[in-house]
Write a protein that binds this DNA or RNA. Sequence first.
DNA 1: AATACTCGCAACCGCTTTTTC
DNA 2: AGAAAAAGCGGTTGCGAGTAT
Length: 260
Amino acid sequence: MENYEQNLNSPAHEEDSDVRKGPWTEEEDAILVNFVSIHGDARWNHIARSSGLKRTGKSCRLRWLNYLRPDVRRGNITLEEQFMILKLHSLWGNRWSKIAQYLPGRTDNEIKNYWRTRVQKQAKHLRCDVNSNLFKETMKNVWMPRLMERINAQTPSPRQPIDKQTPVEPGFVLNPDQHRHQFVQASELCATSSTSPAETLSDVQDRVVNGSGYDPAGQTGFLELNDWGCDDGDNMWTDDESFWFLRDQFCHETTSFSYN
DNA sequence: AATACTCGCAACCGCTTTTTC
DNA sequence: AGAAAAAGCGGTTGCGAGTAT
């Protein structure tokens, strides 16, 4: 731990060989919070020097943004947030800070970690490259509808239902009790778009739905959506306009797929 | 109970972009 | 206008906790 905290191989531009690295202590946190509350969260190098912390400005900024900022939201990523991440990543790729702007309280670092630990793990289990069209199609046509299905199932919609705004189209089944759209099961989906010649979307769907073709040596079995690290009880995000906008948009996109 | 392994996440690094002087 | 400094960003690393053997 000593080596970790006192890495002497710091970059040359950091003249102070006394610079601290590694995990922040409670005392350091308190100093930084106190200093920022008085002087504001700008000019990080100045803060680093003036506060007496033996940290770089970059380190101070990162600690503040990712941990100490009062509006940082901690805890499991909700289903709605998962949906947002998948959707926005499909639009913008690894633009973590841009994605984070649409997830209040979440940091780019957290979203990046979520993607790497959960989503890339899914790709690995499916034996797809995370950047492949095949995996993207699977995301869009299998995981996102299932995620939406679970979101719809767990909470009443706080907004005007979509079915009152738009006609019901192929690809949707209206649930009259809840006035909500219920997505078809992934196994019933039939993609109309093309996929890689070596393996079709339905091949991957087969692994998703049935676990067939899954490497038995893996022993862990196929990961369900429940395994994506969400907490079903944590659903405080359904009032967010961004989420509902994306949900609506996604519902329309999904109509391009049809039943078998 | 001990050891090996896996996973999640905080924090670092290097590069790029923006701001300041 | 240009150089230097600061801020921002995405990729990567490695610690520590939890789990499997």
